[in-house]
Write a protein that binds this DNA or RNA. Structure first.
Lengths: 360, 360
DNA sequence: GCATATGCCGGTAGCGCTAACGTATTTGTC
DNA sequence: GACAAATACGTTAGCGCTACCGGCATATGC
């Protein structure tokens, strides 16, 4: 078995307690004994048993993360970034996936809570109508990410999706499009907010919002790419035919663009595209895809910091952190060859700026 | 606080241990009391405290996963798949990332071991020369994935990378190329094996292996895409100029292809490409990329199963599981328009077949 | 001089659970 | 009806660690 505190204590002729205190930097230990203990620990390659520590202290130094799909580049990047913050603060990460299944999500939440996690970070896939529940009554602090549930008064870190919708739509208007369609996502806050942005921007530009130009995909039904393809074929039948599409995410856009090309139409000449999420490959696609970037890794950092902060202090007022998105313009929405790596067009000057506010 | 075994015991007027046994399906409990206990547990929404259970039983029901980079689609897909297996067996997953840094990796291994994990799954980034060390002496079973360390006699799950190298190269030969270059990866088994396959296949086809056609990138230096671009520019200066390139992975291929296009050359007419890994977006690229698929999700499943198996029985002979790769042919290596979704060309009929063997 | 402070160390109890063994009661066997 | 064996439940002793309090020096106050 591994070396324990007891072993070091016996080895050094001091009490177990003294060793424990030296390890944890308590200040009722003389500097001399602390050094004796610490060097011996290093020699014996001592590692505290975190299970025991967790049980005794009530703190596990683990944060739980529940995402709908690790394969989605957004969540992968988010997880990586979150993991970095946690590691730098000596926290571990326990990961669970809901596979976009609300029941499974509930179960996984219970599972990670049973592990004694100190905080939970979660992108919930509970239907917006039903909302999110199950942790509010627990004492473990939690941070919602990406998908907000406004009536919950919970901590949230995510993108300003309303701004994303306006940004994308405004760009399409500015490049001269008028018949702008929208492929929406599942009925959750990011999709809903982006759609609101889309509609508001159209209205602000004096363009009528047509319901026939808006079609929703849904996660449960099928994957984004396939859904995008299917929905785009429907949109191509609309009269007058759309001359631009703002897609809920890049994967959907990829599917939609492939439908357009199959139909023998040109991008962006016949139909322009803007996606959302700016996944890594978007600039290398058959037609490089314009997309709204949401600084995912910054989101992970913010969520991690917030979670760690919440572990210390209890029950602060719900904090909302929404990062401003920025538009990356590529060939799918602009005829003239754009600069190689895409051009950044944000609301302000600096990218990924943060607007933080206490709700209510 | 959460409800404990003690609470249920008091509530039901039985002893704590009876409740514990009922929970864990021990068979020295009458069916009647078991039902009484179980229903009361469900009512009170009892969740066993896994920290306490782990401490008492020496089993945490957690598997640790250490990967070099979660953002890499291979590891993301692997992690997702592994997580699925674990969940179905009531195991949790604790995730750590080494960021391709050997020192950090060592540290993270120690960290997850301190959590009392029952098994470790790891894609190590230790330099091949130095090899992998630090767990062998521990009692925790571990499974190496993707990157093998043959001298270690450890359990391994990965792709038959040698076959991958031969497969890709053979295809390029078959489409009439003779001056086939290779962009290799960091000095680890996947890259080394793929290169061996590449060389052997060239030799088998009666083509001379030229050292000037082989250039290595390296993870530590820079990202695959950038490296691919840089290295391709070097390859374009070689005389005679290569007419095909087999790339260590898809990301490198993307960078390399962009260098070729910048140089005003055509793909595949002037230079054909085959990548490795078959990431999701490869078929939607500017030029859809032929790639060797390694059934990543099957790898995750196999690794998970093996890890769980090892937890039960101790110290079986090192098991090696190598999945057969299959080639997906797309436009980057074949002039004529290929079928929409790519064509599978494997060694055998069935894809992702497994060859398992005990080493030595 | 006594009380209070301060630095350093240790003992005791317990976190919530399980392994291993003990005790009561029932059942089977001849 | 005596013995063994099986069934059903409980007691005891930890897992490795930490929180809390209690001691015993030496230092400080007036």
């Amino acid at each position: 078995m591994a070396v324990r505190l007891k072993d070091i204590a016996r080895d050094l002729g001091v009490s177990l307690i003294t060793v424990s205190k030296a390890l944890r930097g308590k200040n009722d230990i003389s500097e001399e004994t602390r050094q004796r203990v610490l060097t011996r620990m290093a020699e014996l390659n001592y590692r505290p048993n975190m299970l025991a520590r967790g049980l005794a202290s009530g703190k596990s130094y683990i944060v739980g993360l529940v995402v709908p799909d690790l394969l989605h580049p957004f969540f992968a990047e988010f997880a990586k970034s979150l993991n970095g913050v946690l590691r730098r603060n000596n926290y571990g990460l326990i990961l669970a996936s809901s596979e976009e299944n609300p029941e499974l999500e509930q179960q996984e939440i219970q599972n990670v809570l049973a592990r004694g996690i100190d905080a939970l970070v979660i992108a919930s896939c509970q239907p917006a109508l039903r909302g999110f529940y199950g942790i509010e009554d627990q004492s473990t602090p939690f941070v919602l990410i990406d998908r907000d549930f406004p009536h919950l008064r919970a901590h949230f870190v995510g993108t300003d999706d309303y701004a994303a919708g306006r940004l994308a739509t405004r760009h399409l208007v500015q490049v001269g499009r008028r018949r702008i369609a929208h492929i929406a996502g599942p009925d959750l806050s990011p999709s809903a907010d982006r759609m609101r942005g889309y509609k508001d921007e159209l209205t602000a530009s004096g363009i009528l919002v047509r319901q026939s130009y808006i079609i929703s995909s849904s996660y449960v039904e099928e994957l984004g790419e396939v859904a995008g393809n299917r929905i785009m074929r429907k949109l191509l039948d609309r009269r007058p035919r759309p001359d631009a599409v703002f897609c809920y995410n890049d994967l959907t856009a990829i599917g939609a663009m492939s439908a357009v090309m199959s139909a023998g139409l040109a991008i962006p000449d016949d139909i322009a595209f803007v996606g959302c999420g700016n996944v890594r490959y978007s600039e290398h696609l058959r037609t490089p895809l314009s997309s709204v970037d949401q600084s995912t890794s910054e989101l992970g950092e913010q969520a991690g910091k917030l979670a760690l902060e919440l572990i210390g202090s209890d029950c602060t007022a719900p904090r909302q952190i929404r990062l401003q998105p920025r538009l990356i313009i590529r060939a799918s929405s602009q005829k003239s060859a754009p600069p190689a790596r895409g051009t950044s067009v944000g609301k302000g000057q600096s990218s990924g700026r943060i607007r933080s506010s206490s709700r209510r």
